[in-house]
Nucleic acid binder design. Sequence first.
DNA 1: TAGTAGTGGGGTAATTGGGGGT
DNA 2: CATGTCCCAATTACCCCACTAC
Lengths: 71, 71
Amino acid sequence: MATINSPETEQLLTPAEVATMFRVDPKTVTRWAQAGKITSIRTLGGHRRYRAAEIKALLAGLPVDGARSQD
Amino acid sequence: MATINSPETEQLLTPAEVATMFRVDPKTVTRWAQAGKITSIRTLGGHRRYRAAEIKALLAGLPVDGARSQD
DNA sequence: TAGTAGTGGGGTAATTGGGGGT
DNA sequence: CATGTCCCAATTACCCCACTAC
């Protein structure tokens, strides 16, 4: 099966998206990224983007490893 | 502009919201979540969020299945 | 190029969680 | 057994302004 997960197909979410899904403030999502609880991808301007797959896993209550200390 | 286009996007309520709707204290709502009477979704910080659809059903007097033993 | 909305950073007030007792 | 209240620690929400994204 050698099915490769194309990184180019990885959908990214904005802080507002994640904040809406968790019913929290966008600032709180930023804190989670700073705390290393979620994977944060930074734009060239300094803004954060989050992986849709990871956020969905978090909402499902699944512990997600992959976010160590990036921010 | 962070436009969500997911039919599976569930609306969540804060403990204060549910407490106000039921005319009880937020602590009591927490008890219900611990007892598995209502579905509880936790934020990454440990705070609980509740499904709006389920709370509405409960307020309507409908028996809701889906909360077994989560907390 | 300009305009609007979203985001980041810092700081402060309010809410929440947990245990314990009524 | 279920609910309301007190304690403290942690988390979250809202205020400002400057910059980025589209």
